[in-house]
Each structure stands twice: as structure tokens, then as C-alpha cells.
């Protein structure tokens, strides 16, 4: 998703949260048809790919995934911290239906209760994914986050997300992805309004050039009375280079440069490095993050440090055999002298 949409709509947290909700529900993540040659069979897969490649004269370019997922591997390694206490009860009523009750106590984000409901339909294009997916969560004062994801055919997928706060639509986003054999094209409409005549349109295209390289472009067009000159268009170039267990990805545009590097160092350790330069804000932030998986201890630890001296860590431990999962989060900044601690318990 373009920075423009993120900046102007503020819906990204919703989408991110719904994704993490989906992940915690064990729901299908958007398909990653990209050549994710990670994991144990990475070497074997590469060998086989080399054999097959010789035979078929390397005409087998794979789908590169969406532009939205370009930096995903690197971003996933980074710790997402929270503040305060969180208790979440997940209840699966059937394979297609799940509800959740969340109590959040915090000084920074609104505290209180949230109710969430998820429905997963029966239309299947792959064994792990079913559509449509409807996610809704609402709090007692009526603040709603709604997400609808539907796959109309094996290539065409639509996503709708909306955020309503205090009976006002804060953000709406409708995006459509088309996955070709070796490319993905997406178009996103954000906050369209016929009354103020404003909105954001983002077009994205990602093409596999070789088996390891994907290149693409993004055009973001924003119009409305608040936009200087009533309309503005920003073109960015993007690319990704996958080499075995490491991935380079980058976005370059007039607003800045965003570079990501991801490396799977071993079965337990993954490392991500990110540099983000914003010309408008005149600042650069670099982040180094790592993730340690210890499946034997049912433990995942994510840690990161960035050039603003934010040190973050999130520990996630499943308390087997109980269906509980415990999360401890900390974020510290020695320079600004602040510290945030969060702990969470997820049941179910």
C-alpha cells in the first residue's frame, strides 16, 4: 500500500490488525504465490527448480505476490509492541465461525471491551483458503472495524475495509488484486467521497522479471479540496530480489526511499534490516530486528532496535497443554527516557 493511502486514510492499522486477527485465528493469509523458498526444503526446492529450469528453459516465472506484501517478510520480523494489559478470549463455534472477546486496559489507546466476529465461507480455491471472509469488531460505543475479503475467481480478489468511529466513517478502502501467471496488478480506492469530491486512487503493478527478481511500479493519485493544487500524483518504482533465504526489497519515489533486507539465518533465527528515508520529513530511520522461534519451548521472541534508539521486544509463549498464550511486550527509549510495558493473555 502506498504511503499516500497510509498517510491520508489511516486505515492501515485496521488492515494490519485484521491480518493479525486472521493469523491468530488460523485463517488464510492472502496467498503467497511468490517464490518463498525458505524453510527446510529450501535447498531441495532450489535443486529441483534448477533441474526443472533446465528442462523447461526457464519459462516458469512465478507470480510475484502483491505490492502490498513486498516488504512483508522483513516487516513480520519486527516486534509490534503494545501498552497495558490485554485479555482476549477466542471462541471457535465452528470451522466457519469464530467470535472473540477482548478487554484492553491501557493509558494510550482507548480502554475497554471489544467484540469480534469472523465468518469464513465455503468457496475454496486452494486447500488452505476459503472465501468470503468477513471480519467485524465493535465496541460498546459503536466504533466498528469491518473487513470483507472475497476471491471471485482464482485470479481476482477483492478486499474492503472500513472504519467507523463516533458514527462517522473515518476510513474506507476498496482494493482489487489481479494475479496473472507472472504479474500482479492491484488497484485501490481510498476514502472516496462524491460530496467533497476527494479520494485516493492507487494503482500497483509487480512483474516477475527473472525467477529471483520482481520489478514494479506504483502510481498514487490523490484529489480533493485539501490537496495542494487539488490533485497530486506520485509515481514510485519498486523491486525485490530473492536469493535463497535472503530477500532484498526496495521502494523509490519522490517521497523517499525504503529499503528492506530479510535473511533467514537458521531454523530458529530470522533477521530483518530496514532503512526508511522520508524526504518530506527530512529524516531517515534504520531498524534492525530479529525473530527467534523455539518450537520446542513454544516460544517466539522478536526484538528490534532503531536509530531513534527505540528498543522493543515481544515475547510470545504458548502455555501448552492449556489453550493459553501469553505475550509480554516492552518498548524502551533511553534517550527520551520512557518505557512502555504490555502483557497479554490469549485464551483459545
Amino acid at each position: 500500500m502506498g504511503n499516500v493511502v497510509a498517510a491520508s486514510s489511516g486505515i492501515e492499522p485496521t488492515a494490519a490488525r485484521s491480518n493479525s486477527v486472521a493469523a491468530s485465528l488460523g485463517l488464510p493469509e492472502p496467498a503467497q504465490l511468490s517464490s518463498s523458498r525458505s524453510g527446510t526444503d529450501g535447498a531441495a526446492a532450489t535443486l529441483i527448480a534448477a533441474d526443472v529450469g533446465d528442462a523447461s528453459k526457464e519459462h516458469t516465472l512465478e507470480n510475484p505476490g502483491t505490492v502490498e506484501e513486498l516488504h512483508k517478510k522483513c516487516k513480520d520480523v519486527q516486534a509490534i509492541t503494545f501498552e497495558g494489559a490485554k485479555i482476549m478470549l477466542n471462541k471457535g463455534l465452528s470451522n466457519h465461525f469464530q467470535v472473540s472477546h477482548t478487554i484492553n486496559l491501557s493509558t494510550t489507546v482507548p480502554s475497554g471491551y471489544r467484540f469480534g466476529a469472523t465468518y469464513v465461507g465455503t468457496k475454496q480455491y486452494s486447500p488452505t483458503e476459503a472465501f468470503p471472509v468477513l471480519l467485524g469488531d465493535i465496541d460498546p460505543s459503536g466504533n466498528l472495524n469491518a473487513n470483507v475479503i472475497h476471491q471471485f475467481s482464482s485470479r481476482l480478489r477483492c478486499k474492503f475495509a472500513s472504519q467507523i468511529q463516533e458514527s462517522k466513517v473515518m476510513a474506507t478502502q476498496l482494493s482489487t488484486d489481479y494475479r496473472g501467471n507472472d504479474f500482479t496488478a492491484s488497484i485501490t480506492l481510498g476514502n472516496p467521497s462524491i460530496f467533497t469530491n476527494s479520494g485516493v486512487i492507487v494503482g500497483q503493478y509487480l512483474q516477475s522479471v527473472t525467477q529471483r527478481t520482481a520489478l514494479g511500479a506504483e502510481v498514487a493519485y490523490q484529489y480533493g479540496p485539501n490537496v495542494p493544487g487539488r490533485q497530486i500524483a506520485i509515481v514510485s518504482a519498486l523491486g525485490r530480489y530473492t536469493n535463497g533465504d535472503s530477500i532484498w526489497s526496495g521502494t523509490l519515489g519522490p517521497s523517499g526511499l525504503h529499503l528492506c533486507y530479510y535473511q533467514k539465518a537458521s531454523e530458529q533465527l530470522q533477521i530483518g534490516v530496514e532503512v526508511e528515508t522520508s524526504l518530506r520529513m527530512q529524516e531517515s530511520v534504520a531498524t534492525i530486528a530479529y525473530q527467534i522461534d523455539l518450537p520446542k519451548a513454544d516460544l517466539v521472541f522478536k526484538g528490534s532496535i532503531d536509530s531513534n534508539w527505540h528498543i522493543s521486544g515481544v515475547l510470545e509463549k504458548r502455555l501448552q497443554p492449556l489453550p493459553f498464550s501469553f505475550t509480554l511486550s516492552g518498548r524502551m527509549n533511553h534517550v527520551k527516557n520512557n518505557f512502555k510495558l504490555g502483557c497479554g493473555l490469549m485464551i483459545g
Binding site: L93, S94, H96, F97, Q98, V99, F115, A117, T118, Y119, L134, L135, G136, D137, I138, G142, L144, A146, S162, I164, S167
Partner: peptide, 17 residues
């Protein structure tokens, strides 16, 4: 949409059984 979305999700879930 605001007040109907979550009930609709619940209805779909319950009707699936």
C-alpha cells in the same frame, strides 16, 4: 452498515450451524 455488519456476520455464522 454500521449497525448491521456484525449482526450479519453473526447471522451467517449461526445459519452455517
Amino acid at each position: 452498515f454500521h449497525w448491521g455488519f456484525v449482526p450479519m456476520v453473526l447471522y451467517l455464522g449461526f445459519s452455517k450451524g
